[in-house]
Amino acid sequence: MAPKQQIRKEEWERRLHDVQVSKTDLNRLVMDYLVIEGFKTAAEEFSKEAGLASPVDLESIESRMNIREALQRGDVGEAITRVNDLNPEILDTNPSLYFCLQQQKLIEFIRQGRISEALEFAQEELAPRGEENPEFLAELEKTMALLAFESSPSAPPSISDLLSPAQRMRTASAVNAAILESLSQGKEAKLVALLKLLCWGESMLDERAEFPKLDISEGTFK
């Protein structure tokens, strides 16, 4: 590898200066973030203050958030109902998402110690799907293994993880993403993608050159 190139501060400032981005561009990024992350009132205010149209119906933000919250507190039934209220096609056209929700429901039964209900639900609702699709079956088996370990600390992480908040979060994100997709929105805020890009870009560049690094929390340079 060639020695690192030194990029002078002046040169870098020039580059920063040359970047074409306007306040409206940035406002849109912020709006995208507010919408996707579900900040409904903020999105409303921002739409007025910045004179920017919201890319989606703001009401949809609220129902999406309600669904997410329902999933995060473990109320899968409520979430399914609400998703279908919002747009029945979301679950109809997405079997793996529907399975994911059913699996979450099973997990919640087990978490609550409602073992017989869990078994019944698994046999009636999930087992037939597991036959259709080997991936579903594997997930089902993994979930059923929870019963065997039953809060034993010896359970392997991949199984005990199903009971962690992260699992709820994953399900909630998957549903959230599907709803956003049905609204033709990205599943993740563009700002997050931007952060990833910067991480990639800075580390790639760091291998090749010395350049001023940004402290993103302050917006200043090191």
Partner: peptide, 13 residues
């Protein structure tokens, strides 16, 4: 704003 710098820094990189 830091947000703007985030964009600029990325583009510059």
């Amino acid at each position: 704003p830091a947000l703007e710098m985030l964009y600029r820094q990325s583009a510059a990189c």
